[in-house]
Amino acid sequence: MEIKLKLNGSNIVREIAPDLLLIDFLRDNKCFSVKRGCETSNCGLCTVLMDGTPILSCSLLAARADGHEIYTLEGLQEEASAFVGFLADQGTDQCGFCNPGFVMNTIALLRENPDPTDEEILQFLSGNLCRCSGYEGQLRGIRAFLDSREG
């Protein structure tokens, strides 16, 4: 089947198999930031934005993206660059494999709630698993970014 969508700002038309998952479609289209960490919708590594909303690309058929706008981290480098340095300062990037999904969901959080409390940050990002960092440094990094904007 044919789908038309806007991927990272460009209109594209592709012929796909009806059972193709969005994550595989995106990786086929060179969006390598989108990672698979499980097969059960549990890890959050494959998070992308569909019409601005964070979703799991492993749990959606590519066909459902027809007519929609998808952003992966490849398309949001500038928005991510505004805050990821603060995560790097904490050393919390570690192995990096969960980073793209985590960064995408953080972008979604900050768009929806530009000044979140620690509790709101933890709640919003609870679907993004990380096995390296112990999470605390990720919170410190986001907090440092938010604090840097004040004053």
């Binding site: 964070p54 799991l56 609870s126 679907g127």
Partner: peptide, 12 residues
């Protein structure tokens, strides 16, 4: 609702 997997899942 809020402990069901994560925001991304609950969006779907």
């Amino acid at each position: 609702v809020q402990d069901i997997i994560g925001v991304q899942f609950r969006n779907m």
